[in-house]
Design a protein around this nucleic acid. Sequence first.
DNA 1: CTGAAAGCGCTTACAG
DNA 2: CTGAAAGCGCTTACAG
Lengths: 337, 337
Amino acid sequence: MAEPSKPQPTLELVAARAGVSRATVSRVVNGSTKVKAEVVEQVNRAIAELKYVPNRAARSLANGRTNSIALVIPENAAKFFADPYFATVIQGAAVYLADTEFTLTLLIATEADPAKTARYLRGGNVDGALILSHHSDDRSYVELAGSLPMVFGGRPMSNESGELHVVDVDNVAAAATATRTILESGRRRLATIAGPQNMGAGQDRLRGWREELDAAGLETDLIEYGDFTPPGGEAAMSALLERGEPMDGIFIASAQMAFGALKVLHERGIRVPQDMSVTTVDNDSYAQSATPPLTTIAQPAERQGATMARLLVELIGGGEVPERTIIATELIKRASH
Amino acid sequence: MAEPSKPQPTLELVAARAGVSRATVSRVVNGSTKVKAEVVEQVNRAIAELKYVPNRAARSLANGRTNSIALVIPENAAKFFADPYFATVIQGAAVYLADTEFTLTLLIATEADPAKTARYLRGGNVDGALILSHHSDDRSYVELAGSLPMVFGGRPMSNESGELHVVDVDNVAAAATATRTILESGRRRLATIAGPQNMGAGQDRLRGWREELDAAGLETDLIEYGDFTPPGGEAAMSALLERGEPMDGIFIASAQMAFGALKVLHERGIRVPQDMSVTTVDNDSYAQSATPPLTTIAQPAERQGATMARLLVELIGGGEVPERTIIATELIKRASH
DNA sequence: CTGAAAGCGCTTACAG
DNA sequence: CTGAAAGCGCTTACAG
């Protein structure tokens, strides 16, 4: 067994070595500006020599902050991570936080016992929380927002309660742009594979598609739904073709679903983009490696994660933060439209 | 801003309400068996009424344990998560730990400053660490194993130092089995797409393929390398075909690479399995949704993650744990061989 | 600008 | 089986 190794040096030891009080060492460690430069240097030398690292627990206990932030993710974490979008958002947050004093705690939201997550969050274990991939049952988090600094990635479904901090892309506009791109190539009979309607992104992208077609005076009846995964896209594409209706363009609400849909189109000999113009959202490996490469709306997921983390840190520090922060998207034209 | 809400009730309050000392409450909270059943009940009632939650920091400070475990992952977290195998291992560990007193802290290993990770791990911030996806530069972690309980997922490359705890599948055997499956279908000229040779899994799977062919007296010159991703598999498959050598079977060291390789075979009109028998490792969505579905070696990733967590908890508790724990794999026969 | 001292909320020998 | 008390390693008014 690994022994606890030699005990960590304490503040006290550093103080003794530097010939000052513990209070002074504490001030230096915490970057107080009111310590004489000379003393700061002495203390820092002692810290370096002793390889002193402050004890988190003692610090937390004394100042009432935990320096940890919860990253709340759904129970089927693997499926969640498997979506490059979420994985990248997390990376953005984690990398940002690595340069702060905060630590990221992975909190799995158990479907069987949702209260458990709430209890943990309310229990003073963390200074704040990052909430990702919530769907219609996200009300408990929304309520918590009153008592704990929280930042949501993507708009929550239950929006009744007042002050919520959300970092999101404008999914309605993104879908409208992607749809318009198809229209611009001259197509007039458009379908869509929409995402889950218990998620904000799912709803908003469907709305963007519909609004764009409405504005052009075109039909909006060719809708099937998927769960944002490749098999989901495959099934929805098949269902759409089963209808036997002619169509020459389709907006698919995620690149993963588009990837699955392409498989079906290919099997049936429907050529993209000649017979069917395709656009989607997400500029991930699915969009890039599809055949043909997909015209898509890129969401800067890493930046979104970093922004979420930054806003949460500000919130924890007592700062003011806008309720809604919109991250810009970008249309990437490739060969599929 | 969210206010800190009403202050959490303390041990002291619970003690007063239950009419006992703080020591007794503490014993009840920690499940000591030496408290009279009647008293236990009283205390638990007071805890429930006050919705008391113990303060982690105070607890840590008093007993010298942090109750947190680091999950060390590589810097490009997104790419890492994107591998369903790792995502699932993490899920297994997280779900297991959710039922314990331990919390999972996500620790990004910065390539630019590897010492930072080591400092954090050594700094008394965590009780133990789970190390995943290490490659040849994993020596610093291996060294840390002397001073902090750690469990590795997959064998580390730098194995010189003594006591290491590893949870792994037998990759040599897995690759040999997958290779044998091809041989059993009568093929005699086999290639392989190997994984990165700076990772244990990459080395071992190549070795299994080679040993199986050696035993059968067949050639082992058709080797290309990939990085375990679909594009990596694509490139390697192309390179293999460029050689112009005839071949009728191939073992590909991961399903993701096989997925990419299949794309190339398909484009060139090489039929699987008629013209080329294919087997691989990983029973993930890539293996299942490929065309044709892949014959593969399933690794129970979720169980591996749970096992890693369980062993680490035992280690932290001072228990004895085997140095090497092998997780059984299973050959899944589908249409590709 | 710096120090003495109280206090953060627990746990845990030690006594009984 | 239970309690009084010391102690975990910090931070932070308060004085000076």
